[in-house]
C-alpha cells in the first residue's frame, strides 16, 4: 500500500469533494484515513461544511420564485433588446462594437489632450552632476537617457507569465524549470487561484515573475555606461593613505 503524507491526503480529500478522485487514489486515501485520526477529522469537517453549505443556500434561496413577463420577453422593446444583447456579450457584433468604441475613445482622448513624453530630447541630461569635482559623462549618445533606460528596465523587470500546471508537475519542479524559488511562486500567487497548502493541480494557472530569474537580477542597464574622469589623476584625492 502506498504511504502518503497528511498534506497529500488533504489534497486528495479536496479532490474527493469535487468527485475528481480516481479509484487508485480513492483506495490510497481510504487506507490513510483508517490509520490517521487527524486527516479523518479534516475529512469529517469538510463533509460537515459541504452539508451545511448546501442547506444554508437552499434554505435562503428556495423560497424565491421568478415572476416573468412572457410577453415582454417574446416581444421586447428595441432598447431592451439592444441593452440585453450588448451586455450578455453573446453577439460577436457586440464585442466588436465595444472594442471600436474603446479605440475611438482612446483616439479622441489622445487628440484632445495629447500625450507628452516624460523627458523630451532637449531635457535629457548629457552630463550627470557629481560630487567633489568629478566629471561624469555618458559614453553613449544622449538617447536613450539613463532615466528612460531605467524605466525600460523596471518595466521589463515587472513582466510575468502565466504557467499552466502540467501533469506530474510539483511546486519545486516548476520553480526549477523557471529558475526561481518556490517561495517566489508562493509570494506571487498568494492572492490568485492558487496553492492550497502549497499544492498545485493540473490545469491550474500560476503567475511566474520573470524579474526573479537569476539572469534578470544581474542584467546591466543598456545605454547607461558611465565614464568617470578624475580631475587630478586620482580617484579619491582626499582619502587618507
Amino acid at each position: 500500500m502506498v504511504e502518503i503524507t497528511h498534506h497529500k491526503a488533504r489534497a486528495l480529500i479536496q479532490a474527493a469533494a469535487d468527485q475528481t478522485l480516481g479509484p487508485a487514489e480513492r483506495s490510497t486515501l481510504d487506507a490513510h484515513l483508517t490509520k490517521c485520526k487527524q486527516c479523518r477529522a479534516y475529512a469529517d469537517h469538510l463533509t460537515g461544511l459541504e452539508a451545511n453549505l448546501r442547506k444554508a443556500l437552499h434554505t435562503r434561496w428556495d423560497t424565491y420564485h421568478p415572476n416573468l413577463n412572457l410577453q415582454a420577453i417574446k416581444h421586447p422593446s428595441p432598447a431592451k433588446l439592444v441593452w440585453s444583447s450588448f451586455f450578455s456579450q453573446t453577439h460577436a457584433l457586440g464585442k466588436v462594437t465595444v472594442m471600436a468604441a474603446l479605440l475611438l475613445g482612446y483616439f479622441v482622448i489622445v487628440n484632445l489632450i495629447g500625450i507628452r513624453t516624460p523627458i523630451s530630447s532637449d531635457e535629457t541630461p548629457t552630463a550627470l552632476p557629481t560630487p567633489n569635482g568629478f566629471t561624469s559623462t555618458s559614453a553613449t549618445s544622449p538617447t536613450p537617457s539613463i532615466q528612460s533606460a531605467l524605466t525600460d528596465w523596471t518595466a521589463q523587470a515587472c513582466k510575468t507569465v502565466i504557467y499552466v500546471v502540467q501533469e506530474n508537475d510539483t511546486l519545486a519542479s516548476i520553480a526549477t524549470q523557471h529558475e526561481i524559488t518556490k517561495e517566489t511562486i508562493l509570494e506571487y500567487n498568494k492572492d490568485a487561484d492558487s496553492l492550497v497548502s502549497n499544492t498545485v493541480f493540473t490545469g491550474m494557472e500560476l503567475v511566474i515573475p520573470l524579474c526573479e530569474k537569476a539572469p534578470s537580477r544581474t542584467a546591466s542597464l543598456p545605454g547607461s555606461v558611465l565614464t568617470i574622469t578624475p580631475i587630478n589623476g586620482t580617484i579619491f584625492p582626499d582619502q587618507p593613505e
Partner: peptide, 12 residues
C-alpha cells in the same frame, strides 16, 4: 484545474 483550485480555496 482552476475551478478545482477555487473550490478548494473557498472551502479552506
Amino acid at each position: 484545474g482552476t475551478v478545482h483550485s477555487r473550490l478548494s480555496i473557498g472551502r479552506e
